[in-house]
């Protein structure tokens, strides 16, 4: 049950303060050549894009930036982004953080490691967040925590389900303890959303580790993973250093997690939109959805 008074006014009104994103065409030369990190197959970027960032030879799911995922998942033109201008500040004066933020912005074309908003998927409205692997490896600092928290609060007020694409190297050490606090902050918002009977689906993509795994990535009612995605609390290198031996083949991969009972299924990228649409339709709540897109 949602307790009265727990929320301040929603941070985002539905109209104003949000903006429609343009369909983004990344500003790169047309024919870039990319090697599959798994099998080494050389592919043209256009060829790879056409295949949704999945290797045409071995079906390895390559990293994908957040905007491309929106295009794959959301109905065309339906995505309305929230909190578009929120950026990090170096509140601890942590050495090198300002420079890191600057290059992360340049590398990813994003202002932070997550984009949030609302969209429709096969005609069904949902709230959605998508983390970006190209912004400091999707690490979680104040902005990631705040944007996702606001999204859950918004979804709770407006009776929306939430879909979350996770990719993260963990908590962002440059923000010290405040990044650790984001784990608790987001967890609180997820819990209130859940207590209202709303659905939260997480999609774990390669790699999802650390503080994100130990909080909202693992708090979905339904958790799915992309094929081959590495998902864990401790990263494989840290574990290898600790136990001083090599990890078994396939350790912490999606298939391993499925067998261990920690994900509901593995869903290929090309099936994800239909899969998510089906889940949303199985959880449709008659007339309770207050948001019109």
């Amino acid at each position: 049950m949602l307790r009265k008074g727990i929320f301040r006014r929603p941070h985002i009104a539905l109209e104003g303060n949000t903006k429609q994103t343009k369909a983004i065409t990344p500003d790169v030369p047309e024919e870039l050549c990319i090697a599959c990190p798994s099998c080494g197959k050389m592919m043209f970027s256009t060829e790879l894009d056409e295949n949704l960032g999945v290797c045409i030879s071995c079906s390895h799911h390559l990293k994908l930036n957040a905007r491309k995922r929106i295009i794959l998942i959301a109905d065309e033109g339906s995505f309305i982004e929230h909190d578009t201008d929120m950026t990090s500040v170096n509140h601890l004066d942590f050495p090198g953080y300002d420079k890191k933020l600057k290059s992360a912005k340049a590398d990813s074309g994003e202002k932070e490691a997550v984009i949030t908003g609302i969209c429709s998927i096969g005609g069904i409205n949902t709230a959605i967040f998508i983390m970006d692997p190209y912004f400091m490896m999707g690490s979680m600092g104040s902005v990631v925590g705040e944007k996702i928290t606001r999204l859950f609060e918004f979804a709770t007020i407006n009776n929306l389900h939430v879909i979350g694409y996770c990719v993260s190297g963990g908590a962002r050490m440059q923000e010290g303890i405040i990044s650790l606090m984001q784990m608790a902050k987001v967890s609180g918002a997820v819990k209130l959303h859940s207590d209202k009977g709303l659905l939260y689906v997480t999609v774990l993509t390669d790699p999802t580790t650390g503080g994100v795994t130990a909080s909202f990535a693992m708090q979905g009612d339904i958790i799915i993973a992309e094929p081959g995605a590495l998902v864990g609390f401790a990263g494989p290198r840290v574990i290898e250093q600790t136990i001083r031996r090599k990890l078994p083949e396939g350790f912490q991969r999606a298939e391993f997690l499925l067998k261990a009972g920690f994900v509901d299924d593995i869903v290929e990228r090309r099936r994800q939109k239909e899969y998510l649409r089906l889940l949303l339709s199985l959880h449709e709540r008659n007339g309770e959805n207050d948001v019109s897109l």
């Binding site: 950026t87 928290t149 405040i178 606090m181 609180g188 918002a189």
Partner: peptide
């Protein structure tokens, strides 16, 4: 308790 953790974070908009 919710607000205790809700408040953490520094960012600019």
């Amino acid at each position: 308790r919710y607000e205790r953790f809700r408040k953490f974070g520094s960012y600019t908009e």
